[in-house]
Design a protein around this nucleic acid. Sequence first.
DNA 1: AAAGGATTTA
DNA 2: CGACTAAATCCTTT
Length: 902
Amino acid sequence: MQATGRVRTETVFSERSVRKSLLLSAAAAGATASRSNGAGVPDIYRDMLVAADIAPSEPERPLKKRRPPGARRPELSGPGPASKAAAAATAASKGRREPQRIDDKTGAGVADNDSDESDSDEIEFEDVALPDPTIQTMERDSDEEEDDDEDEEPIQFEDVDLTLMNSFGLGDVQEEEKTPKVLELDLAAAQSKQRRQVAERRKPINREEKDRRIVVHKTHLLCLLAHVSQRNRWCNDPVTQRNLRPLLSSKTIDYLNPSTELTQFGRTNSLKRGLEDVMTKFKTRYKITERGMRRALWAEKEEHLKNYQLPDDIETPPEKSDFREMATTLEGSRDVGAQLFCALLRSAGVEARLVCSLQPLACTPGAPPMGKPPKSRGRLSLEEQYARIPKYDSSFESPVAAPSPLSARRRLGHPNAAAFNAPVMTGPVASSSSLAPQKIRESPFPIYWVEVLDEAHQKWQPVDPIVTESFWRPQKLEPPANDRENCMTYVVAFEADGTARDVTRRYAKAYNAKTRKMRVESVGDRGDRWWRKALRAYSRDYATDMDQIESNELNNLEAREPMPRNVADFKDHPVYALERHLRRNEVLVPGASAAGTVGAGSTGPLEKIYRRRDVRVARTREKWYRMGRTIRENEIPVKFVPKRVRKDNLFGGDDDDDDDDDDDESRMDDTGAAAGNPLYTIEQTELYKAPPVVDGRVPKNRFGNLDVYVPSMVPEGGAYVADEYGARAAFMLGIDYAPALTGFQFRGRQGTAVLHGVVVPAENEDAVRAVIEGLKDEEAEFARAMRSREVLRAWKRMLMNLRRIWAGVGSDDDEEEAQQASKSQHNDYGHDMAVDGHDVGDAEADEDDDTQGGFMREAPSSNGHGEGEQQDLEVDLAADSDEEEGGGFMIDDDYAGGFIVE
DNA sequence: AAAGGATTTA
DNA sequence: CGACTAAATCCTTT
């Protein structure tokens, strides 16, 4: 409504959409506003800026209409609209993942959820209403290795904000018309917070912010994948391919499809020759008239967002029909150029992949900010930052030109040094534009290119017909690190069948040292799994030979990556490690040999480089004990870490709760060692063997408990019974037992012991379990009896009331009064039941909630079936108490019957 | 929950 | 661009 109250962030990525949205937003402000704020658009948008020009993926066929504004969002689990919508995505999880599916879902398939258990916690994006940051839960795979992802145990894992998805133009498709996606931010709500934050604007990014960025990053990746996937599909379009046909001569086609009679090299040469032909033809015919995709940058400040203007020559996001047309006119962005080239090659029978270097918003801090837009002077704003070139000036080296974003300083030894400052694309401006011709300055490295399968050598080779005009030169495609408009982090190649592969390693020269650190993998929260999961939506469910070969190739490339030459790159390097970067509790294996040396900077002493595999974690005796291991005899600590000083230790003896065991041990050690706590590696430990149970006596620690941090700590001759009633049962049986100390909970000042279950002599286990069973039955029986009594009483009351009603028929007042009474009784009844149901056997269950750590978590729930039933009833009864009189009567009848009859 | 060291970030 | 440093944040411990 009030324009002042909100900030409008364009999440559309094209001129056309922007203009349209401006028109629309004025007219439909009310409508959009009402639907967009709702529960409050997540803050995540506030300083998010999408500078990348992602055309919203337009669905091949209309998606479902989105929900009305107020609609609740679908349940994440349980039956409901979401479950049926999810069917398609779920197919993926069942292992029969057809590439076809991708076509069906316009990329929404990325959200697939490999749940083996239920089909219901799936969401299709269009099913999600905009308000309320919707969290989609995916499950993570249990694997540890690279490629064999088999989901054994579904674990809750990734959160992707689906509203973001909407804002990127997926799923937020309204009606038939391709309405631009306008995201309105309810600033009113955010403003106070905003103020506070402005004050401390200079504060570094906190965790919350970091998390938000990660979510945005992931979401952006999903959108980009979907986007490229769609373009890749377009490359298969027969009409497009037919339109491109004039660019192919039959001779060229012959070259491109070399006879198998040729030698290996002959075939490759023929292919290259053909490619050269096509490239030349394509290059000369294709005119770059629009700016293509570029790297998305974060805005530092709100105002930057407000004043943000898309460049005039930004790409018009084509629809399929446009794409077909562009195949004829051969005009457009260089991205579309690469796509058309891909289509062209496919039409010529070449196996071609569409490759895109995704340009998502960074997930790590340290990425360049978007920067402040200049004072609004027309629409030249962004241009000014990059190339302030007078319209009529054809010179690249205009003195007023702002320093090129790709400044002369480049990464040392970058192989593209020569090409680096080369003049960039030029292209006549679209005739329809009123602007005079103007250069389009873009990164001298491509975002889109093509990979061609060299069948003779079983190798995919890059072909970039437009930007670098190179082929068979994977090294030439990576932009330097300081290229603000092009950052190579994820390179994804889409094959004609719709499947995709991450081929970043083929192109990134310092994948381990640098590239990796910009990817989700390096960011916490199981980023690697997330990315695999995201790509799995586009993966084949079986690996072809070619897939294998390529995997090997990429692994080799990674393995051959040269050692970093600077100290920083060794940090968190998957292969190498420096001593200075070792964690406090990390240590080098004794015989570790240096793999090389680095000097810090130009001057400075040389440091030895070790291999990561020679690094071990070291732990204190107590830590190992908590993991069920003990230090072997006569082991010498591999490391000493400084002791924590306790300043309030003057009054000793106050803190002796449960930790005394440990404290004693460490005190023994620290007598002579001012150096600190001794640490040991796992090789110096062995499995802890608890003193055995002999003659039915269970050994106990001095608190009368038994440490059972892990299952292996159960003593020989003993059995662990993970049950609340264990102690009582054992006591009743009169056998010796020890409560199991399964962990500690650090709450308040000191840790408190967590006891769960008991250890009893093995020969008594069955007896104990039997007794427990009995106890539970008894408990349940008692509860049932109580309940029955309650029910009967309630019935009685109700019948009495009814009698009163009947007796009073004829008098309105009486009737009303009686109804009132009846109703209140009814409510009481429900209430009573609820309380009752809850109380039963819950006292001990509460204890259970507090426990933490230890393996007792995996033990079967101690809350028997009886209580489960009761809980259900509680819910039902509570709900029923709101019913109308008559209905309640009937329903109650059923329940009451159930109680009594049983 | 709070302190203090470890680690990350600007 | 990388190393260094100070300051902020995270993590562990009690």
